[in-house]
Design a binder for these strands. Sequence first.
DNA 1: ACGTTAACTGCACTCAGTGCATATTTGCAA
DNA 2: TTGCAAATATGCACTGAGTGCAGTTAACGT
Lengths: 202, 202
Amino acid sequence: MSLRDRKRARTRQALVEAATTLFERDGYDETTIADIAAAAEIGTRTFFSYFPSKEELLFPESDARVRAAVEAIADRGPQEGPADVLLRALRRVGDDSDDLSGRLAALRLRYIREIPAVRGRALQIQTDAQGEIARHLAAAFPDQLDEVGAAALTGAFVGAVTAALQVLLADVDRLDDPAAVRAAVQRATDVALRPWSTGAGR
Amino acid sequence: MSLRDRKRARTRQALVEAATTLFERDGYDETTIADIAAAAEIGTRTFFSYFPSKEELLFPESDARVRAAVEAIADRGPQEGPADVLLRALRRVGDDSDDLSGRLAALRLRYIREIPAVRGRALQIQTDAQGEIARHLAAAFPDQLDEVGAAALTGAFVGAVTAALQVLLADVDRLDDPAAVRAAVQRATDVALRPWSTGAGR
DNA sequence: ACGTTAACTGCACTCAGTGCATATTTGCAA
DNA sequence: TTGCAAATATGCACTGAGTGCAGTTAACGT
C-alpha cells in the first residue's frame, strides 16, 4: 500500500472521527460539512472527494458487510440449502459488525430514526446489498433458484429480519438488550424461512 | 368541501401536472422547483406549502394505497388468516392503482431507478406503509400475532414481492408484460407465505 | 532529479429548503 | 353587506449541500 493510499485512508478516517465527535456534540443538522472538513484539517471542497454526501459519513464501510455475506455464500457446504446459507450469512454479518457498540453505530441508529435523509440512505444501502446477495445466491444454487426466486427468498428473509428489528428500534431501550434482539431475529428468520429450512448447519 | 379546499386541491393538481410535463420535457434534475411553481402559476415560496420537497411530487397519493390495504385488513372474513388478508390487501392495492399506466407513474418508475433521492423516498414510503400494515395486522389477529411476529410476516411478504418486482424493474421491457408481473408476484407470495396459507379466499 | 499523474484547494455558482414579515383571500357571523 | 379572524400566498434574505473549473501541490515511476 503506497504512501498516497495510506495518507488517503488516514484522512478518510479522520473525517469519520471528526464527524462522529461533532455530531455527538452539536447534532446532525447543526454540523455542516465545512465544520467537519475543518476539524479534519482539509478544505471544504476536498471533502467531496472522500464522501459524496453528508449521509455517507454514517456508513463508511457499508460494502464490508456485503462482502462478508457474499463470502458466506461462497463458503457453503455441500448439503446446505439456500436458507441455511442465508442464515449463516446473517450470523456472520451480525458477528463481526460493531452494529450495537461504538459511537458511530450509536449515532447511525439514532439518525436512522430521526433524519429522513439518513433513513433513506440506509434503506438504499440495504436494498442494494439485498440485490447483490440475491444474485450470488441464484448463482450458487442454479438448480433450485432462478433470479426471481432468489430475489423473493432474499427479500423475504431480509424484510422479515429488518421489520422485526424495526419494532425493537421503535423504542431504543429494548435494543440495549441483546437477548431481545436475538429473540426477535430468531423469530423473524423462522417466519421467513420455515418452509426452506433443512436444519443443516444449525 | 369549501371553496378554499377545492382551490387548494386544484392548485395541488396543477403542480403535479406541471411537474409531470416539465419532467418529461427536461428531465428531473434539469427541472427546478421555481420552474414548476411558475408553470402552475404560484410563487416559488408557496410550492413548499403544498409539497415539502421535490421528490414528493412523484408520490402525490402515497397514503391512498395504505388506506386501501388497511381497509382490506378490516374487511377480513371470519376464517381468514393473516396470510390471506395480506394477499387480499396486495390484490386490492394492485388493482385500483394506476401503477403501470399514466404519465406520472411512468416517470416514477424511471426515476426510482435513476435518481437516488427518489429511490430513497420510495423506500421510505414503502417502509412506513409496511409498518402501518403490520400494526393493523397485529391488532386484527391478537391471538395469532404479536408486534414482532406481525412485523416479520409483513416484512417477509412485502420484501419478497418488492424484491421480485425489482428484478423485473431492472430491465424495463419486462414490466410492460402484465403476465410476467403477475407470475413474479405469484411466486414471491408463494415464497413468503407458503407456511401460512390457509387457502381461504383464493 | 524529473516529468507525469493524482490529489488538494479556493472561487464562483446553482439550487433546495427555511424563517420571517407582509399582503391577500376566504370563511363566518353579526 | 360588512367586518373580523384564520388560512394562504408571496417576496426577501439567508443557510447549506453539492458541482465545475482552474491553478497549485504532492507523490509516483523511471
